[in-house]
Design a protein around this nucleic acid. Structure first.
Lengths: 137, 137
DNA sequence: CCGAATCCAGCCGGATACTG
DNA sequence: CAGTATCCGGCTGGATTCGG
């Protein structure tokens, strides 16, 4: 009766599940959380960096800043020389460990089936047109 | 003995769990899978589009193409007019439904706690320098 | 209704150099 | 060691237009 004939919007931008899927889609975030957890909930910048091959220093710093702003991690600077900085999971960050580790375990369990997933550049890499370069001759 | 003193790389680029986290980090992919599942495993482009507010047509098409290439979905074109195209989950795609729905449910269950996650632009939006624009006046 | 092609501003993200 | 600042090529992705 009151149901409109059109399809309902099932992934409203504000709903919690969608925000989760979006958080998971922020590059490096889940991996940082996983790595932090793996190291006991706290670890230094360098260790974090070394555990994330493929993530540049710049990317790592940016990600860490964002995560700090979002309340997922804490940053503690020790006034020593050479400098030492430790990142640790906040309670909110810890909350995410469960689903992340679940996903992680699921990945291990299904490693075989997942080999079929071939290339995975980063995202969309399909709009290379046939032209190459001619913009400003 | 053979263990090196340095920290091990725990998220090697080739390991299955990492590839999963990366797949989840590809914008729209999990949402498309979820939406497809929600609609019974198959649905038309338009319905898909309407269920993903915030996703432009172009993005949707690109994502669908990538997913098709990766074997996550199938695309079927009906030679009718007006055109009708249906996308459906492949067995590989179906495999992902379980963890995605788990995550989805987890999000609903923890909706309260997740409200703390404030802004979530898209990813990194922190490198705005102080300068603004002067390149080519 | 579904999608391809084109245009193009704006950001992404690596490399590098520099501070403390 | 940790982080910032700057340069800058190239991809991202929205808007629009055309086609069946």
């Amino acid at each position: 009766m009151t149901m409109p004939k059109s399809q309902p919007i099932i992934l409203d931008e504000a709903c919690a599940p969608r925000r989760i899927l979006e958080l998971f889609s922020v590059k490096w975030t889940t991996m940082v959380l996983h790595s932090l957890h793996f190291h006991g909930g706290t670890c230094r910048t360098g260790v974090l960096a070394r555990s994330l091959p493929g993530c540049s220093k710049k990317m790592l710093t940016q990600t860490l800043r964002e995560m700090e702003r979002d309340g997922l991690i804490d940053r503690k600077v020790y006034p020593v020389v050479p400098p030492m900085v430790e990142y640790s999971l906040t309670p909110l960050g810890q909350l995410f460990i469960e689903p992340i580790e679940l996903l992680y375990a699921w990945g291990e369990k299904n490693a075989e089936a997942l080999k079929k997933l071939s290339r995975r550049r980063t995202a969309t890499a399909a709009q290379k047109s046939t032209k190459g370069a001619s913009r400003k001759p």
